[in-house]
Design a protein around this nucleic acid. Structure first.
Lengths: 251, 251
DNA sequence: CACGCGACTTGATATTTGTCAACCGTTCGA
DNA sequence: TCGAACGGTTGACAAATATCAAGTCGCGTG
């Protein structure tokens, strides 16, 4: 699935957004300059494989626009691990540890990605104390998100995971009772750890709780009924919602 | 399950082992002294609840001896998330972020635990650059371990998880073809995301691959057969093996 | 416009996993 | 020493989930 793509160097001005990330905002101007010197921005069409698990981590990636699917494979099977949306980094841990990627990454939409050489990140980590501290915050955040995801999978049935996912999306949509799924249902099914067929049936099972689905359009007719069934917990479902400029909310 | 326990202050000399952890070995003598000033060591009998998910993180915990089970609950269900063995910290991410615990912790054996006030850890994090960097390494390690665990659950059946678990334990046992399970089977079943009944049957299903079980004693008669079935992958199964003094091996 | 492709759905069926109840064997304490 | 408690096992059954095959629908292209 997906193919590789080369080329696409962009002017330096495109890095503007990167500086707004908490990870980089605390850096000295010096080390930020140093870090961006070897970096570049690439535009990717949808469905392009950018990195593959097992490879060594040459670049820290920053999603500037679009969306990237992190996925993993084993023995001919494949599962979606996370969807990364702007503005966020991915594979930070592999970069810092200079260890192989544990996940593969592909675009699921047309995306603009900043690529920062891993060795430069590690150099900045050694040289800039504030940058090192920012990385701690970022990693702790990532760690807690994975733990929550893992709890989700181990403690809930697929139907419960879907119900809680919809409630989380509703929060993201500002509490509106109507919103669109942010990607294809087959991606969602893999993210939730189920088959597309199972997801399709799960949506039907949520009709009694006031969930109406039309294509990607979701209508939560009775949030209270859905919440009563889903029993969302802040210790599983409060995922850091991202706004430009940093992370918002407890995580 | 388990009860709370108070008291049990110990003399300072008991902290010796803590200094050997990579997390603390790089600290300045000053900040280490500062950090240990408010810390103490407690002895816990088995099956004692030490922390509960949702509580605020008052202490960073270090397992000096024994074993601690990290587990999570939701809606009346419970699952084992990880077993922490000496010498390792747990709930570092919650401590750093000053956020609620995502997991509960109980001893599964008689254990000696060092308790370091979270606010002191955060103060040391602010004051000591090398300590901040050590935390990065530790968190990146933890993050990658959870990702591997998550891949294990999403990509494998329970039988495959058991087979690979046994192979990992064999490595821990120095490659010996006979070793003991490090804890009760019901804990193992929860850790692997299955019921005790299912685990019992899974062991039987591995007989054709040369796995002989007698109580906690495991005999891998034909490692090659088991490996052929389990198909272990470094990107899932290479978990950092801990030795006194630091982490060993790629993770 | 018709065609084909891809995403999604639906039905039938199989596999995996969980639940419930009964039972075995060991341990530990009255 | 007896027996209750507990961990583990087993069997019968139920629920959750996956698989396979055949659709439907919408959309973009030749």
């Amino acid at each position: 699935m997906g193919q590789r793509l080369n080329g696409g160097y962009m002017p330096r001005s495109y890095f503007g957004d990167v500086r707004q990330l908490h990870l980089f905002s605390e850096m000295t101007e010096d080390s930020y300059e140093q870090l961006m010197r070897g970096s570049y921005v690439q535009n990717f069409p949808p469905q392009i494989d950018m990195i593959h698990e097992g490879e060594s981590s040459d670049f820290l990636h920053v999603v500037l626009s679009g969306a990237v699917e992190l996925y993993a494979s084993w023995n001919g099977r494949e599962t979606s691990m996370d969807i990364v949306r702007p503005i966020s980094t991915f594979i930070l841990a592999a970069t810092i540890k200079d260890a192989p990627y544990l996940m593969s990454a592909r675009t699921i939409e047309k995306s603009r990605i900043a690529l920062i050489p891993s060795q430069d990140v590690r150099a900045a980590f050694d040289a800039d104390n504030d940058f090192a501290r920012a990385i701690v915050t970022e990693l702790a955040q990532c760690y807690r998100t994975v733990v929550k995801t893992h709890k989700d999978v181990k403690l809930r049935t697929s139907l419960e995971r879907l119900a809680n996912y919809l409630l989380r999306q509703q929060v993201r949509a500002g509490g509106a009772d109507k919103f669109d799924l942010p990607f294809e249902k087959r991606v969602l099914s893999s993210l939730l750890g189920m088959t597309p067929e199972n997801l399709s049936r799960a949506f039907k099972s949520l009709i009694p709780y006031g969930v109406v689905v039309d294509g990607r359009a979701i209508h939560i007719q009775s949030p209270s009924d859905l919440r009563e069934f889903a029993k969302p917990s802040p210790l599983i479902d409060d995922r850091g919602s991202i706004t430009v400029g940093g992370t918002v909310g407890e995580t």
